[in-house]
């Protein structure tokens, strides 16, 4: 039996990605329309945000530009789940129709093979908007530009992205057990909208839920504190990278357990 390591998977992913992009561009009209739609979606989200928050000088001690930073941070942190893990949205249809079985006939990891099939270009627009917003807020707040701070930003953006990936893996994999898993996905996906607000607006039981059980507070709030309030970083922010890795790992195991338990209905 062939050994298939990380290098193998990276190479395969790159090749699938290149082919996928090539074929997407060959359908030019589709490509242009979806690019346009992506810009409009992001623009309208951004304008809504401006209107909502421009007249609020502070929320729990956060001023407008801090909020803007958080908003940009969450946009960037949500890019990987959008770009690389979008096929999770198709999982329940494939499981119900029986088409899912095709992912189990290849000598590679089923999760990888399934996820590698779709790369969603729309996420890239979000990434551009997010970066623009972060840069703008960064300048307005007057955060110094040093290698250390930028390195921290990258590490904690990456960390933040892990949580939404994990949440969507969990939500998608419920379809192996329950029929109405569409609701679960939509609810989880809606939760991400809360990520744009400082977690201090959550109180009591909600704070515990959104920190530990459905950890959306990690999608932007805790990781961004490292940049926004460097003198007063809570412990939760520092442990968020480890917690993120653990959470993704657990979601992966849960997903694979679903494949194992699923009995492949449909002839």
């Amino acid at each position: 039996m062939h050994k298939r390591g990380l290098a193998f998977y990276a190479r395969i992913y790159r090749k699938i990605l290149i082919q996928d992009l090539k074929s997407k561009m060959s359908y030019r009209a589709d490509f242009i329309i979806s690019t346009f739609g992506m810009i409009m979606t992001n623009l309208s989200g951004f304008i809504t945000f401006m209107i909502l928050f421009h007249n609020f000088p502070t929320i729990n001690g956060w001023d407008y530009y801090h909020m803007l930073f958080l908003y940009g941070f969450s946009l960037v942190a949500l890019t990987p789940v959008q770009c690389f893990f979008d096929n999770n949205w198709n999982l329940r249809f494939m499981v119900q129709s029986g088409d899912f079985i095709k992912y189990c006939f290849r000598p590679v990891n089923v999760f990888f093979y399934f996820i590698s099939e779709v790369f969603d270009v729309k996420g890239l627009g979000q990434l551009a908007f997010g970066i623009g917003t972060i840069v703008y807020a960064w300048i307005k707040i007057g955060i110094p530009v040093t290698v250390i701070i930028i390195a921290k930003l990258l590490v904690f953006l990456l960390t933040a992205s892990l949580f939404m990936i994990a949440l969507m893996n969990f939500a998608a994999a419920t379809c192996f057990w329950i029929k109405g898993s569409g609701y679960v996905m939509v609810i989880m996906f809606r939760f991400k909208d809360f990520a744009k607000y400082p977690s201090s607006i959550f109180e009591g039981i909600f704070k515990i839920i959104f920190t530990f059980i459905i950890p959306i507070a990690f999608i932007a709030y805790y990781p961004s504190l490292v940049i926004l309030e460097p003198s007063n970083v809570p412990l939760l922010s520092w442990i968020s990278p480890l917690y993120g890795i653990l959470f993704v790992y657990l979601s992966y195991r849960f997903w694979m357990l679903g494949v194992r338990k699923y009995d492949f209905t449909g002839s």
Binding site: M1, H2, G98, K102, C104, F105, P107, E117
Partner: peptide, 19 residues
């Protein structure tokens, strides 16, 4: 499963496995 898959080929009629 993965090792087995190296040595088999599967076709389910009307259900394409290609990209």
């Amino acid at each position: 499963r993965t090792e087995n898959c190296e040595n088999i080929g599967v076709v389910f009629g009307q259900r394409s496995q290609l990209w």
